[in-house]
């Protein structure tokens, strides 16, 4: 793996702050959906970047399993946050409460992994918490795009009772886990993986914005934005791939020096 060109801490800070602000802005007329699209793309990139770090270690089973488990943890904390905020009758507490519960649950899971399964990886707790947070933000922002608000009772009726949350979950798993799985290897590079992650997120948002036809009259606009975003980032991905494949394409041999040139 080549060195990080963008440090993980910066991605984490930018994602957490901007996404939470964007989720709180999801009720705004017309702009709300665009803000939520930004939040979910940022969170997907953050989760994939953390997965690049934890995926180097062998945890005993494949890389996708981490995302499956942590996405389920995020969904459990999402549902409990909805219930707590509707018990408190305070819809502004929903995203913050979800983040708090996600941190606690993923910390318990990482402690079980460390002390019972004896997985000796230093960054395990930190990576598990980061991936759970990012998955939670993807889940919340995609369901905000469907419901067009962050009010927990509307989300409960529109997203959970209809079963759409399972669709969102599987799509988020695909968007987060596919880029690292398809780019991993000695020649793996941050820009290439993250551009594929962003293009995957836009691809999933195309489906979600078609589903949002139920609640928003601007679904055409969101579909157009997702389509343009997907084209832009997929073109970037192809350009990076061609750049880094050059040394193999010319000589037909795998580069000796981990493909740094």
């Amino acid at each position: 793996m080549a060195e990080d060109l963008i440090p993980n801490q910066i991605i984490m800070l930018v994602t957490l702050i901007i996404s939470i602000l964007c989720i709180y802005g999801s009720q705004i007329y017309l702009v709300g959906g665009i803000l939520v699209i930004i939040a979910s793309v940022l969170a997907t990139a953050y989760a994939t970047n953390t997965l690049r770090h934890i995926g180097k270690y062998s945890l005993g089973t494949g890389v996708p399993s981490i995302i499956y488990m942590l996405m389920a943890v995020a969904l459990v904390s999402y549902v409990s946050a909805i219930l707590i905020s509707s018990y408190l009758k305070l819809s502004i507490a929903f995203p913050i409460m979800g983040i708090l519960i996600a941190i606690i649950l993923s910390y318990i899971v990482s402690m079980i992994c460390k002390h019972i399964f004896k997985i000796q990886v230093e960054i395990l707790s930190k990576a598990f918490i980061s991936i759970t947070l990012a998955s939670l933000i993807v889940l919340i922002s995609m369901s905000c795009l469907i419901a067009h608000t962050y009010n927990q009772s509307v989300i409960y009726e529109e997203v959970i009772q209809t079963g759409l949350i399972l669709l969102i979950m599987i799509m988020a798993v695909m968007a987060i886990q596919n880029p690292y799985n398809s780019c991993m290897g000695p020649n793996e590079d941050q820009y290439r993986t993250l551009s594929l992650a962003c293009s995957n997120a836009f691809l999933m948002l195309m489906v979600i914005s078609i589903i949002s036809i139920l609640n928003s009259q601007f679904w055409m606009l969101y579909l157009l934005i997702s389509l343009i975003g997907w084209i832009v980032f997929f073109r970037k991905y192809v350009i990076y791939t061609k750049q880094q494949a050059a040394s193999i394409r010319r000589f037909g041999l795998w580069p000796i020096d981990d493909g740094d040139d």
Partner: peptide
């Protein structure tokens, strides 16, 4: 039925991954 399906699928997602960490390979 939808709610019960979502909740019981989540059990599979978490417990299966934990068990496969225990198997290890």
């Amino acid at each position: 039925g939808t709610l019960a399906t979502i909740f019981s699928l989540m059990l599979f997602f978490i417990v299966a991954v934990m068990a496969s960490y225990n198997i290890g390979g």
